[in-house]
Design a binder for these strands. Structure first.
Lengths: 336, 336
DNA sequence: CTGAAAGCGCTAACAG
DNA sequence: CTGTTAGCGCTTTCAG
């Protein structure tokens, strides 16, 4: 009852030609006559032939599968990046396998290992928050596997990089709060090891100093990414000192902060303004709706995939692409 | 400058043994002495050996890679299922490649084809909304590849299936609206070809008839899944006739309906009650917050992965698992 | 306990 | 334009 899978040998036999001819015909090689080419293709369809890409890539020493590692698949931004990558990669004949690091360095390392074992042709990566050392990436480089980093990148690793214009986004968000009349704008930052968060921090600092406020470190809290952290941190912030507005490096922490503010009876935006980053889908559904900096994940995916294809085709390496962002003003911050 | 990748042959040579021995040692085969086993493993690590799973699966005729096809990766429910699957599959030594069908039959067929070409060991599938014919799945069956369907299943295809208790969820949601005092409860249904939506419809019908309302087809609208469709359909519904409450087969259509209601100045829940299905993250963030039926995606993923492993190990086939659901009452429906 | 040898399905020189 | 041959890296009989 075994379903024997049919190979190029079977179809070669059926046509009294050699496997090579079949292989070439199927690949559309012009060195085989149009006649036999069509004959082979016809027979292949008729016999229900499905190529074994595993065998092909073993032979060729490379595969058309690209690996992609994201912290979490269920973040709006990352799932958009994934779609953006697929939009470019699939038509180009590549396909994608996706891994989640779950924001853990260990799982990120495992994912890299799995992808290498599976002989992927290249790796698209956005670093986990926890990642502090980079030996696993050096291994990718050492093996000459194209590595394209996006969004959460580490500058010390070679290869192409695609990032948002985090600096400008943060600058615009902070400036907007200041213009709206807030005087003491706090900042919930991400990890300092990630360039994306560093730059958001820098943009915040720039806008503040430009407005004549010198940096007050009590207004800045690090590693505040989650909803829970946002909630807790806002309470600690207001206990610790005075602030009348907040620019968050992410929407989840902004959400948590808004919940704490609501609980404390502080009116948003009259008494306290909030702007997030990422423009998660919930931003326009909450009450009050959340102002945020929109990152175009889809476009970033397109760019990252394009960079990957360039590497794969050996055209270039080490280019850095910057994707523009856009401030969306909603209820959580007064309009200027 | 080429980085030669090292194989079992290299480590065999280095140790003056044969590749066979190395292979066995690495696999932990007890037929090779503990001494050489450790020796080989040590050398392997020292030389930075990474097994080529491509070659292994070509040889073995099967792979440890499982393919998974979901309509969209960025739906909260599906991304939870994915995490649930990974939680079981990874520790068991399998790994996962994820494809999106984007609710298109064509892309679903392509995804199946890609997975088959890549010689996956099994396929986990949740059908696209558009899928009407099932030849591509018959092909999977014919090739003896384990197929586990989850959530959006088609009963006519053999293999294990994991579904939510859609019937009970819909029944509870509708009953809740009736108990809260609403008299004419409408229903925005999904496609009739999907069992999940059929059952939600049946649960709705059951609750209505149990309360003494005979089925009024003007209260039911089909294929209303998206936010836009929900918005439009609510307007059409109220133009067409009278309704004072709505049970939606999904949260997105419920969201659209709420937006239409807000626009029309109809108070929720005093004048009109709404309950959704899926408990998307935004349900508790909107204003008013949305009552919904929670599906435990993570648990479904666990169950689906477990069913897959059973098939892979040849234990059973064709079992049907039902995952319980839970009604969460929020502001959009009066409490009883 | 270890070796020799064959082959998974495919591609790519090299010949003709 | 087509065939011959070799081999990608690994596992697995079959012998010892």
């Amino acid at each position: 009852m075994e379903m024997k899978k049919i190979t190029i040998n079977d179809i070669a036999k059926a046509l009294s030609v050699t496997p090579s001819t079949v292989s070439r015909a199927l690949a559309g090689n012009t060195r085989v006559s149009v006649k036999t080419r069509n004959l082979v293709k016809e027979k292949a369809r008729e016999m229900g032939y499905q190529p074994n890409v595993i065998a092909a890539s073993l032979r060729k020493g490379k595969s058309d599968t690209i690996g992609m590692i994201v912290p979490r698949i269920n973040r709006h931004f990352f799932s958009n990046v994934i779609s953006g990558v697929e939009e470019i990669l699939n038509p180009a004949g590549y396909n994608l396998v996706i891994c989640q690091s779950g924001e853990s360095q260990l799982k990120e390392e495992k994912a890299v290992e799995t992808l290498l074992r599976n002989q992927v042709g290249g790796i698209l990566l956005s670093l986990s928050l926890q990642t502090q050392t980079f030996d696993h990436l050096q291994e990718v480089i050492r093996r000459q596997i194209p590595l394209v980093q996006f969004d959460r990148i580490h500058a010390g690793i070679s290869g192409s990089k695609v990032i948002n214009d985090n600096y400008t986004g943060a600058y615009l968000a902070t400036k907007h709060l200041i213009k709206a009349g807030f005087k003491r704008v706090a900042h919930f930052a991400g990890g300092r090891n990630l360039k994306a968060y560093q730059e958001r921090y820098m943009g915040y600092v720039k806008a503040m100093s430009e407005a004549g406020y010198e940096l007050d470190e009590t207004l800045v809290m690090d590693n505040v990414i989650t909803r829970e952290a946002g909630y807790e941190s806002l309470k600690r912030l207001l206990k610790k000192g005075v602030a009348d507005a907040l620019f968050c490096a992410g929407d989840y922490s902004a959400l948590g902060a808004l919940e704490a503010l609501k609980e404390m009876g502080i009116n948003v935006p009259d008494e306290f303004g909030v702007v997030g980053f990422a423009n998660e889908p919930f931003a326009e559904l909450m009450y009050p709706t959340l102002s945020s900096v929109e990152q175009n994940g889809f476009e970033m995916g397109n760019k990252a995939a394009a960079a990957m294809i360039k590497c794969l085709e050996g055209t270039v390496v080490d280019e850095e692409t910057i994707v523009p962002v856009r401030l969306i003003v909603r209820q959580s911050s007064k309009s200027e």
